[in-house]
Lab assay of single mutants.
Amino acid sequence: AQASVVANQLIPINTYLTLVMMRSEVVTPVGIPAEDIPRLVSMQVNRAVPLGTTLMPDMVKGYA
């Protein structure tokens, strides 16, 4: 199964992502692939992302 990117903490709206904020986990539904974690660093979330939430492409500015 493919691992997705999951929030490792509460990520406030407009926060620039860093490695410590994200982890990879096999979840349903599938979100942003874990292999894209390096690409996500320094990208901004466009909403608050609670701890344990799967990151979806529409949550990250400029990802989709």
Rank of each mutant, 00 (worst) to 15 (best):
P50S: 12
G62Y: 06
L17F: 03
M22K: 00
L19N: 10
I11T: 01
V30Q: 09
P38S: 07
A64D: 14
A7Q: 00
Q9E: 12
M56T: 09
I32P: 00
T54N: 02
V6Y: 02
V45L: 06
A3G: 14
S24R: 05
A48W: 05
V5E: 02
I37C: 03
Y63A: 04
L17A: 00
S24T: 09
V60P: 02
N8F: 05
K61N: 12
P29W: 03
G31M: 03
V5T: 12
M43C: 03
T28M: 08
V60Y: 00
T54A: 09
P38T: 10
I32K: 00
V27N: 03
P12D: 12
P29H: 07
M59T: 07
P50R: 08
T28L: 10
A7V: 08
V5Q: 01
V27Y: 02
A7T: 10
V5Y: 01
R23Y: 15
A7C: 03
S42H: 14
S4P: 01
S4E: 00
G62V: 04
A48H: 06
Q9V: 15
I11K: 00
G52M: 07
M43Q: 13
A7S: 13
V45G: 01
V5L: 04
M56D: 10
D58G: 13
G31C: 03
N46G: 12
V49A: 11
P12I: 04
G62T: 04
I11R: 00
V6K: 05
L55E: 01
P29G: 05
A34D: 14
K61P: 15
L10P: 14
P50H: 14
K61D: 08
A34I: 06
E35S: 11
L51N: 09
P29Y: 04
R47C: 04
S24H: 08
D36G: 06
V49C: 03
L40F: 02
N8S: 11
L51F: 12
V26P: 07
K61L: 11
N14W: 07
A3I: 13
V6N: 01
M22F: 08
P33A: 09
T15I: 06
E35M: 05
P57Y: 05
A7E: 01
N8M: 11
V26I: 07
Y63C: 03
D36L: 05
P12E: 13
M22R: 00
S42I: 05
V27M: 06
V30E: 15
I37D: 00
I32Q: 00
T18F: 04
I37Y: 02
M43F: 12
L17R: 00
Y63D: 04
R23I: 08
L55W: 01
T28E: 14
Q2G: 15
M43G: 07
L10M: 14
A1H: 05
A34L: 06
K61T: 14
T53G: 11
T53D: 11
T15F: 06
P29F: 04
A1E: 15
L19R: 05
T15S: 13
A3E: 15
V20T: 13
V41P: 04
A3Y: 10
V5I: 12
M59D: 15
P33W: 11
R47E: 13
A48Q: 15
R23W: 05
A64N: 12
L51M: 13
L19Y: 12
I11Y: 01
M21G: 03
A7P: 02
P29K: 05
V30T: 13
E25P: 02
P50G: 07
A1S: 10
V30Y: 15
S24M: 10
V5R: 01
L55C: 02
Q44V: 11
Y16W: 10
N46Y: 11
R39G: 10
L10Q: 14
P33L: 10
L17V: 03
V26M: 12
I32N: 01
N8A: 13
L19F: 09
M22N: 00
V30D: 15
Y63F: 11
G31E: 01
E25L: 05
M59P: 01
R39E: 04
P50L: 08
A1G: 15
L40R: 00
V5K: 01
M22E: 00
L51I: 13
I13D: 09
P12M: 08
P33M: 10
M59V: 11
Y16E: 14
T54G: 03
M22Q: 01
A34E: 12
Y63T: 06
P57R: 11
A34Q: 12
S4W: 02
P29L: 10
M56L: 06
E35R: 04
Q9L: 10
V45I: 13
V45K: 00
Q2L: 09
N14C: 03
V6C: 03
I32V: 11
P57E: 07
A34M: 09
L17W: 01
T54H: 04
P57G: 07
D58N: 11
V49Y: 02
T15A: 14
E25M: 05
V27P: 02
V60C: 02
S24N: 13
A3S: 15
Q44W: 04
K61W: 08
L10R: 06
T18L: 10
T53Q: 12
Q2I: 09
V26D: 15
K61A: 15
L51C: 03
M56P: 01
P38K: 09
V30F: 15
R39Q: 12
Q44F: 05
Q2M: 13
M22T: 03
L10G: 14
L10S: 10
E25V: 04
L40Y: 02
A3K: 07
S4F: 02
L17D: 01
N46R: 07
Q44Y: 06
L10V: 12
P50F: 12
M43A: 10
L51Y: 08
I13G: 11
M22I: 13
V26H: 07
N46C: 03
V27G: 03
V6G: 01
G31H: 02
K61I: 14
T18G: 11
P33V: 08
L19G: 10
E35T: 09
V27R: 06
S4G: 04
Q2E: 15
M59S: 08
I32L: 08
A7H: 01
I32S: 01
R47V: 07
T53M: 09
V20Q: 12
G62H: 10
Y63P: 08
P57S: 05
N8T: 11
S42T: 08
N8G: 09
V60G: 01
M56H: 14
E35G: 09
M22A: 00
A64S: 11
P57T: 07
R39C: 10
Q44A: 09
P38W: 06
S24C: 03
L19C: 04
S24V: 10
V41K: 05
G31N: 01
G31K: 01
L40G: 01
T18R: 04
L55F: 13
V45E: 00
A48G: 09
S24L: 05
G52T: 03
I11F: 02
T15G: 11
G31D: 01
T54M: 07
A1N: 07
N14P: 00
V60I: 13
E25Y: 04
Q9K: 08
G62R: 04
S4D: 01
V5H: 01
V6Q: 05
A34W: 10
Q44M: 13
A7F: 01
V27S: 05
N14S: 07
V45S: 14
A1T: 15
L19E: 12
Y16Q: 10
V20N: 15
M56F: 11
E35P: 10
T28Q: 14
P29V: 05
I13H: 14
Y16H: 15
A64F: 03
N8Q: 08
D58K: 05
R39A: 07
V27A: 06
P50M: 09
Q9Y: 14
A64K: 07
T18Q: 13
V20F: 15
Y16D: 08
D58F: 09
I13V: 15
Y63I: 03
T28C: 05
V49H: 02
D36Y: 07
K61S: 15
P33E: 07
V60N: 01
N14Q: 08
V5W: 02
L55S: 00
L17P: 03
T28A: 07
Q44D: 03
I37S: 08
A1I: 14
V41Q: 10
V45C: 03
V49P: 01
V45T: 13
L55H: 01
T53E: 09
P38F: 09
Y16I: 08
M22P: 00
R39I: 14
Q2H: 09
I13F: 12
V6D: 00
T18S: 15
V30R: 03
E25K: 03
A64M: 08
Q9C: 04
P50W: 05
Y63S: 05
Q9S: 10
T28G: 06
V6R: 05
R23E: 06
G52S: 11
Q44E: 13
I32F: 03
M59G: 04
P57N: 05
I13P: 13
T15L: 03
I37H: 03
P38L: 06
P29R: 03
I37E: 04
K61Y: 14
A1R: 02
R23G: 14
Q2D: 13
V20R: 05
D58R: 04
T28S: 11
P50N: 09
A48V: 12
P50E: 14
I13Y: 10
S24F: 12
R47K: 10
R23D: 06
G52E: 12
G52H: 07
